[in-house]
Design a protein around this nucleic acid. Structure first.
Lengths: 361, 361
DNA sequence: TTGTATGCGTTATCAA
DNA sequence: TTGATAACGCATACAA
């Protein structure tokens, strides 16, 4: 009653192991009659090839690795759930398994790569963030290991840079640009930007979209006074909003939902009635408006407008391009047709919401 | 420049492969002199045994599997991040890798078990929830596969039941009981319970704690009127709270942060000033209080009191008991001493917070 | 179209 | 204490 193997099946069917192997890996090379007979026996016996034996022979594990970053904020990190699920699902239907690991730092991440490569023979890695002048992508490239990144490559100055490895990212600037346009349509003119004080490339990108849209609308002279940087927390958002409000801002575009949450709270406190218009988007007639980023569950729960990243689509594409790299190298002789985009910038979507009427009329 | 193997190392050192293998797996069986010489060579060459070859030989993959549930709510599901990270970390330091997979249903989950067992040779599984009369645990038990569950076993009627498989859970009743005690200490007497309408064992357990504490405090006669069931959403929480408030409740204990969020919003709207006392916990003098469950990031962000589950500890213990089951079977001859608790009920912690002053004075 | 022989890298068994 | 041999389950080159 133990699990069937190639050998046990072969003797049972009175054919060679090779024939069964061919039925599985090169069906066209075997006569239809025997092929069907073998296939029936495979199904009946519930035979499944052993991945370990196969890996030993082919040097491929059909296994992808990904580092699980520690859950930081919890508000902003809420995106990971969806990304990870879509990633697992996509990998699974592409015939790959997904192995998770932890690392305290990028240096340790590299050491983990090395170990997982040597010990488990992982075929490739998914990186869920990119840093300026990323040592990890350099290492992987030098080692000749396949990988794909969720995040654009940045040079050491934090500027976008060309790279020849596969990556997928979301166009943050387009997101904040869309937020500004939405607020302009609501009648706002003094629209502030509440960003991070870290100077991260991602944050700069989001600020850039705000600048572009404001300039295009003719409010370029406000770019200095209406730009505020704060710590990426609810408290930081409240503090930054106090400054922006004192400079006359009636609406703010934020780099994160944490900041936006703080902004809403601060406005509710300092300007009673700021969100009274439960019936629809508020105008500049004493009304306020806030747009967050990432469209976390918190935003949805509180009626906070936010920029939604297509993380599921990003995850699917990461798998698509990575598996194409892994599977395609051999088949590239046959299908020299184009594969999936090796580099892809996805457009986010601004989700407009009506703030929950959390204050009494 | 290819990776060293047992054979290459052996010829280089002029010893047999077996000796090197022994140095790794049974160091006491090799003479100290040669042992050290081999160990030095291993370190110098950066040799690491191949998991695939090892698995082929030992029939153990050092690999654990876990189904990734689709991110449902996003508010309540926010716990998964922390659980998964702790799980990965614990597995890693126990020498195991973690493989993720997806399934649409519990039946498909079982089919995935079967496939992952046959193909990848996983050593065991972690289940992240338990259902009444769980078919998955029955299947795994029948198959003789090791597993551990985050969640108590329930019989088909949703009552706690004994089972001999390892599990870890958090005592929900103790959590709501603690919530009630906190509210009593604040001066509240009419404390409502806002629970799920699904009749899930987990929900019943949480309701039970409220009942126990209320009865103990002498408010047993209110158990019927102050118990409300609603859909597990923010809107459901608001609706349920309207009912509870109309029955005179000044405080509510909720089965989730989603419900609690809805409760806060509803109270803010219907009772201006309900949370005015920003300076400290509110009393029954016109003040309101809400306690959620799970201590999600949303609760922390909004100053919502909530019951915090020790998910990291739960994850670590799940790995502890599962790896003990896997590793310990052989060593049980030597160390017949007690291992980790095979069944463990962890106590949650009530986190008391001051609501953010989101309404104007 | 099918079968035979060999090796992937490791550990277990046994003999020296 | 160490070494030779076989076997884990599969796929590839080559022969029939």
């Amino acid at each position: 009653m133990s699990r069937p193997t190639l050998a046990s099946l072969a003797s049972e069917l009175a054919v060679s192991r090779q024939t069964i192997s061919n039925v599985l890996n090169a069906p066209h090379r075997v006569k239809p009659a025997t092929r069907e007979r073998v296939q029936a026996a495979i199904a009946a016996a519930g035979y499944r090839p052993s991945a370990a034996a196969r890996q030993l022979r082919t040097q491929r594990s059909m296994n992808l690795g990904m580092r699980l970053l520690p859950a930081t904020d919890g508000i902003n990190g809420a995106i990971l759930d969806r990304f990870l699920h879509a990633l697992t699902e996509a990998a699974q239907s592409a015939g790959y398994r997904l192995t998770l690991f932890c690392a305290e730092s990028d240096e340790e991440e590299i050491r983990q790569y090395e170990q997982l490569l040597d010990v488990a023979g992982l075929d490739g890695f998914i990186l869920t963030s990119s840093t300026p002048d990323d040592a990890r992508t350099r290492w992987l490239h030098a080692r000749g290991t396949a990988f794909a990144v969720f995040g654009r490559p940045w040079d050491s100055a934090g500027q976008p840079v060309a790279a020849d490895h596969p990556w997928v990212d979301v166009d943050g600037a387009a997101g904040t640009e869309g937020s500004v346009k939405m607020l302009l349509a609501q009648g706002h003119t003094r629209i502030g930007f509440l960003g991070w004080h870290t100077g991260s490339p991602v944050g700069n990108d989001r600020r850039l979209g705000w600048k572009r849209a404001m300039s295009a609308a003719g409010y370029g002279q406000d770019l200095v006074t209406l730009n505020v940087e704060a710590e990426d927390t609810v408290a930081g958002g409240a503090a930054g909003t106090a400054v922006l409000a004192s400079r006359g801002a009636t609406a703010m575009v934020c780099s994160s939902d944490s900041l936006a949450l703080g902004a809403m709270g601060q406005l509710r406190e300092s300007r009673p009635g700021a969100f009274l218009r439960g019936g629809g988007p508020a105008g500049p007639d004493g009304q306020a408006a806030v747009v967050g980023f990432d469209d976390t569950p918190v935003a949805a729960a509180l009626g906070l407008s936010s920029v939604a990243q297509p993380v599921e689509e990003a995850a699917r594409h990461v798998i698509r391009v990575l598996t194409h790299e892994l599977d395609g190298s051999g088949a590239s002789l046959l299908s020299r047709g184009e594969g999936p985009e090796r580099q892809l910038l996805l457009a986010p979507r601004v989700v407009e919401r009506i703030p929950l009427p959390l204050a009494a009329p």
